[in-house]
Design a protein around this nucleic acid. Sequence first.
DNA 1: GTGAAAGCGCTAACAT
DNA 2: ATGTTAGCGCTTTCAC
Lengths: 371, 371
Amino acid sequence: MRGTATRVASPAQWPGEPRRRATIRDVALRAEVSLGTVSNVLNRPELVAPETRQRVLDAISDTGFVRSSAAHQLRAGKSRSIGVVILDVANPFFTELVRGIEHTMVEHGYALVLCSTDESASREQRYLRMLEEHRVEGVLATPAERDLTPFVALAERGVTKVLLDRPAPAGRLCAVTVDDARGGELAAAHLFGLGHRRIAFVNGPATIRQCADRRRGARRAARRAGLDAGDAIWEVLVPSLTAEQGEAASARVLEREPRPTAVMCANDLLALGVLKGVVARGLRVPEDLALIGYDDVAFSSMLSPALTSVRQPKFELGATAAGLLLEELSGSPHEHRQVVFAPELEVRASTTGAGRPVGQSAPPSAAAPSG
Amino acid sequence: MRGTATRVASPAQWPGEPRRRATIRDVALRAEVSLGTVSNVLNRPELVAPETRQRVLDAISDTGFVRSSAAHQLRAGKSRSIGVVILDVANPFFTELVRGIEHTMVEHGYALVLCSTDESASREQRYLRMLEEHRVEGVLATPAERDLTPFVALAERGVTKVLLDRPAPAGRLCAVTVDDARGGELAAAHLFGLGHRRIAFVNGPATIRQCADRRRGARRAARRAGLDAGDAIWEVLVPSLTAEQGEAASARVLEREPRPTAVMCANDLLALGVLKGVVARGLRVPEDLALIGYDDVAFSSMLSPALTSVRQPKFELGATAAGLLLEELSGSPHEHRQVVFAPELEVRASTTGAGRPVGQSAPPSAAAPSG
DNA sequence: GTGAAAGCGCTAACAT
DNA sequence: ATGTTAGCGCTTTCAC
């Protein structure tokens, strides 16, 4: 007789009991079918008779059954998850990137495990280990160190990997980057085009690839403008790319004789600090000093004056990286590729004065400062 | 004979072969010990003779063995991971919170699965499902909707849970919040204390609890200052808490007759927008209009003038939530608790004019505007 | 269309 | 100190 359960698969548990989670077996018992049938309802419902299927579905909701992804993964061999290793969750550049990644991965049914290393190699190490234990199918990462061996090693142990914002050793890995030299060139060329001839470049250490590349681009722009890079660009080094460092650097910039007519910063945070320092000294931007940032983070357009900046396609960067990973995971014949995005110059009032504040006519374009 | 392997546990796999991952069994074969011994080396090394242990360790590194957390979890019944569900990864408030959580959880050997819902109930639903499938031991979450039933349901299915920045139904769940009414009161009281009598409050919809609470606090401050809340505080409603909305609101604020002497914003982004709009119209902050934000996000102190704001202890909020979760997970007798943090007023130049720019003497405190 | 059974990689209790 | 063994919850042939 159907109605007589031989074993209790009770969803209404004994109160006080630490309630065991329902398994596929409990569902089978309650629906009075076999274990395999429940699995079929879960994975290939079309194989199961509608009536049976419904009974199983009811049993599932009655018991509050939720499949165990551990058991699933163990049996099926795939975790349907990927690891994302970034340098800093608190940095808007990376969070935009993550959104891009999430957008495409979630669509394909993958879960993201996000790891923020705070640029520490040991934290990175721990996280990579954890991701490997979780058998993530792939990893998207911005390496904390120059040395890529841990990543190449991981790749050789069979974990598919795509590098973010970091070129890979040719042919060994896929990578998605932005052309930072081009970005530096865009920024500097913009300033030279406006007539500036003495530019301060507030930059981070050359050990950071992005900083080195942007510097290279800026110097290229100088040469292309027929200038001597050493004369036209005066580099002010800061240890880290923060607003505090920018403010400190502004003092050094303004003391310099002859005073630079423009400041170019390695990122928007530095520019924010410079802006604060400059304004505090009673100088006007861009009339007394033009200012340009890098990254075009969300608040840049809202500053007064709005900050000219170089935009990186952060969301697309993430989405593309995810796409490459999916391609590689799909198993279709795959050649490691590097995708390089082009940065874009976003011109605003901090260099041209041409911002158009609401309800007030735009001031005339600032005259090019005398060389 | 030891040296004669009966089966190949070769780490040097056949090239072209999709290389199977080494299992504990491969390690045992290579180290010529039993499966259980390898497990012991992994989990209770003190039980294994040093010499044997070393042989196993060598075999582990030779084979590139990495334990499968799926199998581990299946057997051991614990996933050593928790889920963190936030509204928006791109919001600095949440990323600081996450850092706080990560800080304490990683110390205790837990992995974090971060989920950003973008305030969508359906995404939240999907994520909760996924977390449950992963058998996370607990969930820290900021619910996307007012309705907490999905969370309470989850809790009743045995997943430990702590609510973030959201009070819980009494005794049903743990929760960690900041006293937003108090924060609103602090901000408004500060302005009243400076002599302001006509304050514009740029606020989001009352359906957002934080907005409603901050409003309530502001009105309480008015009453405590012996003022009529309706006269002293003029609310300007915006649909979302963004800089764009702040800029738009600034126009409305300035058109009002008599013009308010101060603006209080429901968050720093709104304040940033207001600042931009106000400056664009040629008004000075705080001389013509004082401005105060909420959240004290990173860039606020770097604005010109530096923004007075109400700080929320974001990191501690996260760390405390993680602590509550750990306590509950530890199985020790536990009563659901609500921890309420006190916000703090961070006074800067945008209300007092007393900022002290580097290398320049501080201007005298702005005189209180006439009532 | 449904059920029985093998086994994914690991842990822990027990035997030696 | 080391080996043997029974599952954890699930998927997936393969019979029926």
